[in-house]
């Protein structure tokens, strides 16, 4: 089975999630649990780094939709960065850049929080 994992770190009071592998209807539960935990702990400043993500389906996209409103209502955000062209094309095709800030570099996303 293709793997999915999440590594996290805190930098400048921002939670940064590093996604690895394949994000689909099976593995998206792990991301949902991770974001739910952060939000429940009052951590609303979140960056998701896609550099090591190989695949995303709509189940993965839905997880970000489920939490962005709460993050923004609490003066935070979920900013996305490091997408390969193939991942970005899926977000772009559905219009996600209308709602989400998407950056090439993680540092650019960090800078937007300060």
């Amino acid at each position: 089975m293709e793997e999915f994992s999440i590594n996290t770190k805190n930098q400048e009071n921002i939670e940064i999630l590093y996604l690895n592998g394949f994000l689909d209807a099976h593995t998206s539960v792990e991301l949902e649990n991770c974001l739910e935990k952060l939000i429940s702990e009052g951590k609303y400043r979140i960056i998701v780094n896609f550099e090591k993500l190989s695949y995303i389906s709509s189940a993965g996209l839905g997880v970000f939709m489920a939490f962005i409103e709460t993050a923004r209502d609490n003066a935070g955000d979920i900013k996305l960065c490091g997408m390969s062209d193939k991942i970005y094309n899926i977000f772009d095709m559905l219009g996600f850049p209308i709602l989400f800030e998407i950056y090439k570099e993680e540092n650019s996303a960090i800078g937007k929080f300060s």
Partner: peptide
């Protein structure tokens, strides 16, 4: 099962 989506892909 969603477990089999990787096999499918």
């Amino acid at each position: 099962s969603t477990k089999n989506l990787s096999v499918l892909r």
